[in-house]
């Protein structure tokens, strides 16, 4: 296992370097000019040109790339063009809301979606199955911002139970934390949970047709035991895969959810950085997020081995 992990981590290096080069080039080739953003909309062309020169944005592309790559190799992601703050600081400042939202969404989705998926398979082609599938199709199809605004209208504006926007650090107490994170979590969980429920249902249905399930039932085991100990464990592989892929999708889903609920997380930082062409921040974020994706994939591989004894690395 250790050898596998080391090999996997070494294999990630070319991926990260590739991501860095591609992101750098795409940003420079895309239209937009951070100097113009920095100067402001009513700045004269001379002012914009002065700032561009000052920032070194008129230097050759290769020079700009190697300057940045040199910093990254020293563990420095650079400084934001717009705010003049270190990119690491900005990422760390914004990590908590995104990690909190990711964690709550992950937990809520797993807790609700896996049992619902199993129930749908268990009661295949009954009204239970149909209700679960309708919910999951809706959850998967309705855009997050629509769900978000509807929840805000109902629970914040109409019922006044929860706040419209914002984030409370967990250090402010569990009550405020839950009150602020609830609606974004439900919004994101609907999508993520729908995905997991559908895959769970499909995987279980496939396993339920296997001979060993019939044998287990013939032995007189309780149906819940058949489901949890035999069917669900074998069906876990595809579910773990989708949970892993979904975690990556959660980050992109957070872009919209964080905007709707004004969560000051990495999603909003990404959008702000892209809108203001803050190259060092975008590059730093994508580099960090690509590392997170790779880490998730490694964890998924480890999880395979944990749930399925046949898999050995």
């Amino acid at each position: 296992m250790l050898r596998f992990l080391i090999k996997r981590l070494i294999a990630t290096l070319p991926v990260v370097v590739g991501v860095a080069i591609v992101v750098f080039l795409i940003l420079r080739l895309a239209p937009g000019d951070p100097a113009a953003v920095l100067a402001g909309g009513t700045a004269t062309p001379e002012t914009v040109a002065e700032i561009r020169q000052k920032l070194g944005l008129d230097a050759p592309l290769l020079t700009q790339f190697f300057t940045w790559a040199g910093l990254v190799l020293h563990g420095n992601l650079g400084t934001s063009i717009i705010t003049h703050q270190p990119v690491w600081n900005l990422i760390l400042q914004r990590a908590e809301p995104t990690l909190s939202l990711g964690a709550t969404t992950f937990v809520v989705s797993i807790v609700f979606a896996v049992p619902l998926g199993v129930l749908a398979a268990w009661y295949h082609q009954t009204w239970v199955d149909r209700v679960v599938m309708i919910i999951s199709v809706l959850g998967f199809s309705i855009p997050a911002f629509v769900v978000g605004y509807l929840l805000v209208y109902l629970f914040a504006i109409d019922l006044k139970w929860l706040p419209v926007q914002g984030f409370a650090n967990i250090s402010r107490g569990i009550g405020p934390f839950i009150s602020y994170i609830t609606l974004p979590t439900i919004t994101l969980s609907l999508f993520y949970g729908a995905l997991i429920a559908r895959i769970t249902r499909a995987s279980i249905l496939e396993v339920l047709g296997e001979d060993y399930i019939r044998t287990a039932r013939a032995k007189g085991l309780r149906e819940s035991t058949v489901m949890t100990r035999h069917a669900l464990r074998v069906a876990a592989g595809p579910i773990i895969s989708i949970v892993g892929i979904g975690l990556a999708m959660l980050i992109s889903g957070a872009l919209i959810t964080e905007s709707v609920f004004n969560l000051p997380g990495l999603g909003r930082l990404t959008v702000d950085a892209v809108m203001s062409r803050d190259y060092p921040v975008i590059q730093g974020l994508i580099l960090v997020l690509s590392l997170v994706y790779i880490l998730i994939n490694v964890l998924v591989d480890i999880a395979y081995a944990v749930v399925d004894p046949r898999i050995r690395y």
């Binding site: 706040p163 905007s259 004004n262």
Partner: peptide, 18 residues
Amino acid sequence: WIGMPDSQTAANALMNGE
């Protein structure tokens, strides 16, 4: 001064007294 990129959210927050 709270940054709210979505003006709809800002309006909702005002209506809710936030």
